[in-house]
Amino acid sequence: MIGFRGATAVVGVGTTDYFKRGTSPMSSAQLVLQAILRACADAGADPRTVDGFVSFGGDANEGMAVAAALGVREVRWSSQVWGGGGGGVAAAVNQAAAAVYSGQASCVAVYRGLAEADDGRRAFAKGHVGPLYSAHGVVAPAQICALRTQRMLEMDGVPPSTLEAVAMAGYYHAQNNPRAVAYGKPLDHETYSSSRLISEPFHLFDCSRENDGAAAILVVNAERAGDYRPQPALILAGVQGAATGWTESVENEERYTSAGFHPAMVERLWNNAGVGPDEVDVAQVYENFTGPAVAAMIDHGLCPPGPAAGEVLTVDNLTVPDGALPINTAGGNIAEGFVHGIGLVVEAVRQIRGDSPNPVPGTDVSLLIGGPMAPLVSSTVFGSPATV
Rank of each mutant, 00 (worst) to 15 (best):
E279C: 04
N358E: 08
A264G: 13
F338E: 14
R255C: 02
M168Q: 14
G63A: 05
N252I: 02
E251S: 11
F53W: 14
S106P: 00
Y256W: 09
I334M: 12
I352K: 01
N272W: 00
G52D: 04
L236D: 01
H128A: 12
A264F: 10
A35K: 13
E336F: 11
L37F: 05
N288W: 00
S27K: 09
T49V: 12
A109N: 11
L163S: 12
G157A: 09
E200D: 15
L313S: 04
L269F: 06
I217V: 15
P47I: 00
M64C: 09
T290W: 10
A167Y: 08
P178Y: 00
A35N: 13
E287Q: 12
G274I: 02
D46W: 07
N177L: 02
N61A: 10
A96T: 08
L318P: 05
R255W: 10
G331H: 12
P372E: 01
D118C: 14
Y171L: 02
S366Q: 07
S28K: 13
A215L: 06
C107F: 06
C107S: 08
L70Q: 03
D316T: 07
A117N: 11
C207V: 13
H340R: 11
G127P: 05
Y101Q: 14
G130A: 12
Q34N: 11
T244R: 15
T363Q: 00
A167S: 15
G120V: 04
A335D: 04
G301S: 07
S378R: 06
L33E: 15
A123D: 09
G6L: 03
V346H: 05
A123T: 05
L376S: 14
D51F: 02
C303K: 03
V381I: 14
L204P: 01
G6D: 09
Y256T: 02
R209G: 13
V50C: 05
K185Y: 04
L269V: 04
D364V: 01
R122W: 08
P359D: 05
M26H: 12
C40K: 10
L318S: 03
V181I: 15
E347I: 01
S208Q: 11
V360C: 08
T363G: 01
A182Q: 14
G291R: 05
A39W: 10
T380P: 00
T191K: 13
D322K: 12
S24I: 04
M152S: 07
V285C: 08
Y228L: 01
M26K: 13
P292R: 11
Q80S: 15
V346Y: 06
S134T: 15
T8L: 04
L187E: 06
I369W: 02
A123F: 15
L147K: 15
E200P: 01
Q284I: 01
I217T: 04
V181H: 14
A39K: 11
S55V: 03
P141T: 08
L204Y: 12
G130Q: 11
D227Y: 08
G63D: 05
L218C: 07
G170S: 13
I327L: 05
R5V: 04
V282T: 02
E254D: 09
Y18G: 00
H128C: 12
V266H: 05
Q351M: 06
E116Y: 09
A296C: 07
E253H: 08
